[in-house]
Design a protein around this nucleic acid. Sequence first.
DNA 1: ACACTTCTTGAGCGATCACTCAAAAAAGAA
DNA 2: TTCTTTTTTGAGTGATCGCTCAAGAAGTGT
Lengths: 214, 214
Amino acid sequence: MTEAATPDSAPAAGPAPRPRRGRPPAFDREEALSAATRLFWERGYEATSVTDLTAAMGIRPGSLYAAFGDKRSLFEEVVRRYGRSPVGAFVGVALAEETGARAAFARILREAAAIYPDPTHPAGCLVISAATNVTPQDAGVQALLRDLRNRNRQVFEDRLLAARQDGELPPGADPKALAGYIATVIQGMSQQARDGATTEELGRVAELALRAWP
Amino acid sequence: MTEAATPDSAPAAGPAPRPRRGRPPAFDREEALSAATRLFWERGYEATSVTDLTAAMGIRPGSLYAAFGDKRSLFEEVVRRYGRSPVGAFVGVALAEETGARAAFARILREAAAIYPDPTHPAGCLVISAATNVTPQDAGVQALLRDLRNRNRQVFEDRLLAARQDGELPPGADPKALAGYIATVIQGMSQQARDGATTEELGRVAELALRAWP
DNA sequence: ACACTTCTTGAGCGATCACTCAAAAAAGAA
DNA sequence: TTCTTTTTTGAGTGATCGCTCAAGAAGTGT
């Protein structure tokens, strides 16, 4: 439940590991981002302090601010990276790989059931749950994730509109309503996973949800 | 989506307005709780500061702590009161008033669509969204609301189990899975309302969700 | 009038918040 | 070696966090 874009299109790794001047960083940027992601994912943006972050990332505040700007910028980079990770990109991958709309959304719901409770990472979806409770001064972070969610719902609607034009959906079907329904179920499944629901339980939820398909 | 108990059974108002000694409170307790509820509902537990609360309630910190204990106790009282309010109790009311299980859950989903986006109060459900992002030191508040949500899911399951025994649900129906599905949809609808979904949009989501009924 | 009880007030407690900065350290370039 | 560049370090910034308390104010009881 994140970016529904193509998996990757950038020129992959840089052209060459050109040796840079100055003192080399003492920490692995990817590992540090991974640790920050886990914290933001588990607790959310404001409930994760810079002290928590530096402790988990194994660096001091000065290094964090030199490498990532500020807490807000670090969070934005975490969100972008999450959207490119398998667990954050499964929605877009399913939409890109499945030819049928029904097959795509069935796969999305079933994979959500498998992924959201996976104990190898925090439960649920970071985009859905990391900025629910914020002070007014961090409303921008809340808006950032809300826009990602609503953009995803629009991607659903576009796909369903195309399915209706292709005849896969009956002419009377309502793509906008169906997109809202699927988004609702996915977001509810994320919440359920955070409340302790297992993959088996969410799998049954997914199958029930699919019975509403026109 | 809160307490699924009977609307009221306490002896209502006290036996008499016995005049108390000492200086009378300068603020209305119900109004103060109402203001605190709006803040906790809108922003969540930790994102609402005591300074925010005292400003909205029109009192000074000393009065707040004398009247409500501490921030945590105030929140718990807000949650209890919310569960007795119309918007917090509609689930229990529908389960109590509707004789058929299908009628009860259809009413619950349709009323959620009408209530969650209602602009006369913050969007969504306080129990669902007020303690999503918390620091470890406030894990108890998170657990409090999680338990309320899971208890509600259990009430759903009990009602559906009875429906299967009554023959309203086919013998092959899975009450536990169906309860999880309905809880998922309700929690997703709360999230959607907070993301800007209208009553009309959520109404269509509710109708789609009901198509999954066995 | 006076005591007693309860509530309000405003100042302020230690802890933590996100964040900064000068100095030291570690690399390549000259 | 010396200079330049970049990173790390540890102390510390002002602001805000939840919360406390002594003093005063506003009632009832005698």
